[in-house]
């Protein structure tokens, strides 16, 4: 497959390892080399280290899992000191995932990332359902999305990807707001707010009560949202949510995603992305279309 040029970046293939499921790019070395990926998104990073939520933090659900990690992370200073030297040795697209509670902290974080040469783009996480403030609070309002994106675009020296929350009534509206504010690409979907009750203890299963649902259970919702966002905007889309096979990935491309992201499935089969990439290339060949023609093809097929 030819490389993919999108949002001012060049991806060797359309596969991205999703934030929070790929650590700081050094967790899968026993399984495969990160250079085999189109790109990877680092674990959400904040200005200060965050302790995260108390356990229980995760629980399996039918065809998925709910997590309430609470954005535990090492903070930007330790990212620079301990993790960037390794990331500098890699060649695939490196995306930092940013989390802050206020606009000013988002700006400070963006400025710090500007100084890290090896980071190619930033993904702003305005869609985490597992933190008390910031996170999803920004992402559920078109006004806040626009305000934040505009301010971050002003200071960022790198392409800005806005990660959208599925926990909204009209995702197309939020997507338009981000595009209007200058976002270079959109990434969707983040996890869906959800919960489980343990009927033995009669308590919510997670200490945080609610968490974010991911895995195959959310795939049809994510495909629907990518389809809607593709109609609403013209900037590139990184699509994902529940992908665990080449065929799943192809659905997202046909719905309108230029790139696809794999998250939870990395936990189940950590060696699998390179295998899926090979299968995906074969599936694309079988269609007789070029990859770029496949992006959003379901819309065109539907209207003919």
């Amino acid at each position: 497959m030819k490389s993919i040029k999108t949002a001012g970046l060049i991806f060797a293939n359309p596969f991205i390892a999703a934030s929070g499921t790929f650590g700081y790019a050094d967790s899968y070395l026993d399984f495969y080399h990160p250079d085999l990926l189109g790109g990877f998104v680092l674990k959400g990073i904040s200005l200060e280290p965050r302790k995260g939520n108390p356990p229980m933090r995760i629980i399996e659900t039918p065809s998925g899992m709910i997590n309430a990690i609470g954005l535990e992370n090492i903070g930007i200073e330790r990212l620079i000191k301990d993790k960037i030297p390794f990331i500098e040795t890699l060649h695939s697209v490196a995306i930092a995932n940013l989390y802050a509670e206020t606009k000013d902290d988002f700006i400070k974080l963006t400025e710090k990332i500007n100084e890290i040469k090896r980071i190619d783009a930033i993904e702003i996480n305005i869609s985490c359902p597992n933190v008390k403030s910031g996170g999803m609070q920004f992402g559920v309002s078109p006004k806040m999305t626009e305000y934040l994106t505009k301010n971050i675009k002003k200071v960022s020296s790198k392409p800005v990807i806005v990660k959208l929350s599925p926990n909204v009534a009209d995702i197309g509206e939020i997507a338009k707001a981000a595009e209007g504010a200058g976002a270079d690409a959109l990434s969707l979907i983040n996890t869906i707010s959800a919960m489980i009750i343990d009927t033995k203890t009669m308590l919510p299963a997670l200490a945080n009560v609610t968490g974010g649902l991911s895995g195959p259970a959310i795939l049809p919702i994510a495909v629907r949202m990518v389809y809607q966002v593709y109609e609403a905007v013209s900037i590139p889309i990184i699509g994902g949510g529940g992908i665990s096979s080449a065929n799943d990935a192809l659905q997202f491309v046909m719905a309108g995603a230029s790139l696809v992201s794999i998250g939870t499935y990395n936990f189940i089969s950590p060696a699998s992305i390179p295998v899926i990439i090979k299968q995906f290339n074969n599936e694309v060949k079988k269609t007789d279309y070029s990859y770029s023609d496949l992006i959003g093809i379901a819309h065109r097929q539907h209207s003919t």
Binding site: G20, G23, P54, P55, I58, I59, E72, F267, P270
Partner: peptide
């Protein structure tokens, strides 16, 4: 013992509280 998401240190789902934090 812990409920685990990945088993190899990446999901941060299995933490236990210790004197050195989670």
């Amino acid at each position: 013992e812990a409920y685990m998401g990945c088993g190899f240190g990446v999901c941060l789902g299995c933490v236990v509280n210790t004197k050195n934090g989670y």
